[in-house]
Design a protein around this nucleic acid. Structure first.
Length: 319
DNA sequence: CGGCAGGCGGTTA
DNA sequence: TAACCGCCTGCC
C-alpha cells in the first residue's frame, strides 16, 4: 500500500495521500503534539519520542490528490507501529468520496480538513485526557496533561533543552490522591481521575486491552461507569483509541454544526445521533472530525460567516 | 476584568 | 427522564 524508506532512527512512508500534519494534530483528537515548524510536529506515542514531518510533493497535471512523504524520526522504527497509529492502511480518499456524495456541507468540510486521519491512541491516555478536557479549553487541557506527565510519567529524553516525559501508567496514577492531582491544576476533575484510576486498577486494567474487541454497547456501559466519564467523553475514547470509527461524539461544536448547517435542534442529541447513523454510517467518527474541524476553522478564520450562521431552533426538526 | 470553555454528577419534579 | 445547577481554573 505504501513504499518505505528506512534509515537509522528514521522511517519514511512515501507517497502518502489524504494526510496533513495540521489537520491530523489539530482536529481535536490529541493533545500532546507540539508544532515545531510548518512541516513538523514532535510528541510522544506509547513512550516513544517522535518527530513527525510531512513533505508535500510536486503535483502532476494528472494527479489531483495531494501526496507526500511522511517522515518519522524516532527510536521506534517499526513501520507497522506507525502505520497503525496514523491509520495509514485505510483508504480515506474512498471514505471522503462516500461522505461527500449528496452532502454539499460535508464536501466543504472535507475541502477544509482533507488531511485528517483518526489516530489510534493509547486507551488509557485517551481516557484520562478526555476526562480532563471536559468543560475546559485546549491550552489548559494541554497544560494539565503535560503537568501530570511531568509529575507521574517517566523521563524518556530531552529535545532541544526540553525534557520529554511519557504518559503515566495506570498503576502510577492509581496511587495518586485527589489532593496530589489538584496540584496539577486539574480542578474538580482531580477527584474523577483519582477515583477513576483506582476503579480501573481494581479491575486489573484488562478492559484497556480488550475493549477494542468488545461490542460498542458493552464498552460504553463500562466506560459510563467510570467516575468522570459521561456520553461525550466515552465516545471520544471509543473513537480515538479503539478504532470504533462509527462513533459520533457530540460536543458543543458538533451541536453547533448540526444546528447551523444541518438544521437540527441544538439540544436534540438523539436527533443528531440518528442523523449521523443514517447518513454517515460506519464512518460517523471520521465525518465528525471533518465537521468539527470545519466549524472551528470558520469560527477562527471567518467570524462574520460564523456569526451569520445564527442558531435557529424555530425551523429545526424536532425529531 | 468577567464570562465562559471540547461535560459530568447530583438533585429535583 | 428531562431539566437545572454547581464546579476548578485560566483563557479570551
Amino acid at each position: 500500500m505504501y513504499e518505505l524508506k528506512k534509515d537509522k532512527n528514521k522511517i519514511t512512508f512515501l507517497d502518502v495521500s489524504d494526510f496533513n500534519v495540521d489537520h491530523v494534530f489539530d482536529c481535536g483528537q490529541c493533545f500532546r503534539w507540539k508544532k515545531e515548524n510548518e512541516n513538523t510536529y514532535y510528541g510522544v506515542v506509547d513512550g516513544n519520542f517522535a518527530r513527525v514531518s510531512f513533505f508535500e510533493k510536486e503535483k502532476k497535471d494528472d494527479d489531483l490528490e495531494v501526496r507526500g512523504d511522511l517522515q518519522i524520526e524516532s527510536y521506534q522504527t517499526d513501520e507497522s507501529f506507525w502505520a497503525k497509529y496514523f491509520d495509514l492502511d485505510r483508504d480515506y480518499g474512498k471514505i471522503k468520496k462516500q461522505l461527500a456524495k449528496d452532502d454539499p456541507t460535508m464536501a466543504k468540510a472535507i475541502e477544509e480538513g482533507w488531511g485528517i486521519r483518526i489516530l489510534k491512541q493509547d486507551v488509557w491516555e485517551t481516557l484520562i485526557s478526555f476526562i480532563i478536557s471536559q468543560n475546559s479549553n485546549i491550552p489548559r487541557i494541554k497544560n494539565c496533561i503535560e503537568t501530570i506527565c511531568k509529575e507521574y510519567g517517566r523521563e524518556i529524553g530531552e529535545y532541544r533543552g526540553e525534557k520529554i516525559y511519557s504518559f503515566p501508567t495506570l498503576q502510577d496514577m492509581a496511587k495518586c490522591k485527589e489532593a496530589d492531582l489538584k496540584l496539577c491544576r486539574l480542578g474538580y476533575r482531580a477527584k474523577y481521575i483519582a477515583e477513576g484510576s483506582r476503579q480501573i486498577n481494581r479491575d486489573g486494567g484488562s478492559i484497556l486491552d480488550i475493549a477494542e474487541s468488545m461490542s460498542d454497547n458493552d464498552v460504553l456501559k463500562y466506560l459510563l461507569n467510570i467516575s468522570g466519564v459521561g456520553p461525550k467523553v466515552a465516545s471520544c475514547i471509543m473513537l480515538f483509541s479503539m478504532s470504533k470509527l462509527n462513533i459520533f461524539p457530540i460536543d458543543v461544536w458538533v451541536k453547533r454544526v448540526m444546528n447551523r448547517l444541518y438544521s437540527i435542534d441544538e439540544d436534540n442529541i438523539t436527533a443528531m445521533k440518528d442523523y449521523a447513523e443514517k447518513h454517515f454510517g460506519k464512518y460517523g467518527g471520521i465525518a465528525q472530525q471533518y465537521l468539527f474541524y470545519y466549524i472551528r476553522q470558520i469560527s477562527v478564520n471567518d467570524p462574520e460567516l460564523y456569526k451569520s450562521l445564527e442558531i435557529d431552533n424555530s425551523t429545526a426538526s424536532k425529531k
